Amino acid sequence: MKKSTKPTILVVNDDGITAPGIKALIDVMKDLGRVVVVAPDSPQSGMGHAITIGKPLRFDKVDIYEGVEMYRCSGTPVDCVKLAVNSVFKGEKPDLCVSGINHGLNNSINVLYSGTMSAAVEGAIESIPSIGFSLDDFTLQADFSHCKKYVRELAMQVLENGLPAATLLNVNFPAGGDLKGIKICRQANAKWAEEFDERIDPHKRPYYWLTGVFQLNDAGEDTDVWALEHNYVSVVPVQFDMTAYHAMPILNNWTFNV
């Protein structure tokens, strides 16, 4: 792949290549550079950083949006980034990787489960400046119009200034217009209190539906949850180095009797 004078932008998602959210992201990125899309052929929400092993991946060029190079992948969002880097760009990294716009929030602890964010994380692992975008609306009729100017501004800032090493951005939008602006935030301390609804199938065997309640354990006004509740765009810098550095001195004081 020859390097263009315009920035090359890899667009991925987890809702599938025909999702309205990725169309909104493509519309913005087309004005900023040369767009290459690699996205799953079906929804992959909640896949986290899963990759496909033990079975082949299907990878086909498709023509969905005029003037955009697009590929449909049978694998996970992370598979899409890996195939883009190795099979489309052939090791020559794009200037930016953007993932989304996801149908549904990926704030707080949701970042760990998100296929949208894991695709962006994989981009960052490949040393590509990366951003994940999500909207607080799960419906196929979601309105992304109020997100676009913020998507554009954040992408331009990253293209111009780059990001710190091993860092990416997790960006979440409230639903509806009249946003107050951008807040740089930390990830709120929250978790899902899961329950499993047990049911019986026609063969008298039990099966389970996952349900749950989002539990916020954080009253801080510097979190992504607070920002979204107060109609701001939340921007959280994320790192994929999961080392708990504050715990290392404690563990180094342990006495191991082996």
Results as ranks from 00 to 15, higher is better:
Glu221Met: 12
Gly54Tyr: 13
Asn189Tyr: 02
Ala247Tyr: 00
Val28Gly: 05
Gly181Glu: 05
Leu32Gly: 11
Ile184Glu: 15
Leu168Gly: 00
Val11Pro: 14
Asp218Thr: 08
Asn102Thr: 02
Val258Ile: 14
Asn110Ile: 09
Tyr207Arg: 13
Gly33Tyr: 05
Ile131Met: 07
Ala247His: 15
Lys3Tyr: 07
Gly91Asp: 03
Ala247Phe: 09
Ala188Tyr: 02
Gly21Asp: 00
Tyr232Asp: 11
Ile200Val: 10
Pro206Ala: 13
Gly176Ser: 06
Leu168Ala: 10
Tyr245Ile: 14
Ser118Gly: 03
Leu83Tyr: 10
Tyr245Ala: 12
Met29Phe: 13
Trp192Arg: 07
Gln157His: 05
Phe256Met: 14
Val111Trp: 07
Leu140Asp: 05
Lys30Thr: 15
Gln187Asp: 01
Asp143Lys: 11
Arg186Ser: 01
Leu216Met: 08
Pro202Ile: 06
Asp222Gly: 00
Lys30Tyr: 09
Val12Ser: 04
Ala165Phe: 07
Pro43Ile: 02
Val121Gly: 00
Asn106Thr: 04
Ser118Gln: 08
Asp222Asn: 01
Leu57Pro: 09
Trp192Gly: 07
Phe89Cys: 14
Asn161Pro: 00
Leu10Lys: 04
Asn172Pro: 02
Gly46Arg: 10
Asp79Ile: 09
Arg58Cys: 03
Pro206Lys: 13
Ala155Asn: 00
Asp224Val: 01
Phe59Ser: 05
Phe214Trp: 08
Asp14Gly: 00
Asn102Trp: 02
Ser108Val: 15
Ala193Thr: 08
Lys149Gln: 13
Ile9Asp: 10
Val88Trp: 04
Cys73Asp: 15
Tyr65Met: 08
Thr76Pro: 15
Leu96Asn: 06
Val238Phe: 08
Pro77Gln: 01
Met47Trp: 01
Ile200Gln: 06
Val78Asn: 04
Pro94Ser: 01
Tyr208Asn: 10
Gly100Trp: 06
Gly220Asn: 11
Asp137Trp: 03
Met70Lys: 04
Asn106His: 07
Val171Tyr: 07
Phe256Ile: 14
Leu163Gln: 06
Trp254Asn: 13
Phe144Asp: 07
Val111Gly: 03
His103Ala: 00
Ser127Cys: 15
His230Met: 15
Glu160Leu: 12
Val38Ile: 06
Ile101Pro: 01
Ser42Thr: 01
Pro237Thr: 07
Ala190Asp: 15
Trp254Asp: 08
Glu69His: 11
Val258Phe: 15
Val238Gln: 02
Lys149Arg: 11
Pro56Thr: 08
Asn231Pro: 15
Met242Leu: 11
Val235Gly: 13
His103Tyr: 02
Ala155Lys: 10
Gly54Pro: 06
Asp63Gln: 03
Pro202Ser: 13
